[in-house]
């Protein structure tokens, strides 16, 4: 549960930030955020409260982790799997 949406802080006024959610802006309260936030920072919003300042490095960290997870599977193996996938898809189509 817990719908969480990331957004970018555009202004801070005391304990309230204006956050851009890439389309609409909304006031988000900073009462419980873990670190001080400034304009330009990314935050995770839940029910109008920032529950986390998302350090930019951590976005990269997540991506690096995923690449590492994938690296366990050798590249040629993946290509082979891709080919297998295509064969499966073609067969599905035939059946289809």
């Amino acid at each position: 549960m817990c719908l969480g949406v990331p957004g970018r802080v555009v202004a801070v006024d005391g304990s309230v930030a204006t956050v851009d959610f890439w389309g609409v802006k909304r006031a988000v309260r900073l009462d419980v955020v873990d670190e001080p936030v400034e304009p330009g920072d990314y935050i995770l919003n839940h029910v109008g409260f920032a529950i986390r300042r998302i350090p930019p490095d951590d976005i990269e960290k997540t991506l690096a982790l995923y690449d590492e997870l994938l690296s366990v599977v050798a590249e040629d193996d993946l290509m082979a799997a891709d080919v297998r996938g295509e064969i499966d898809a073609a067969e599905d189509k035939k059946r289809g």
Binding site: L3, V5, F21, W22, G23, V24, R26, N45
Partner: peptide
């Protein structure tokens, strides 16, 4: 889908 609509619908589920 407009960006605004996408953003609002994500925020509101």
């Amino acid at each position: 889908l407009r960006d605004q609509v996408r953003a609002a619908s994500e925020l509101l589920g």
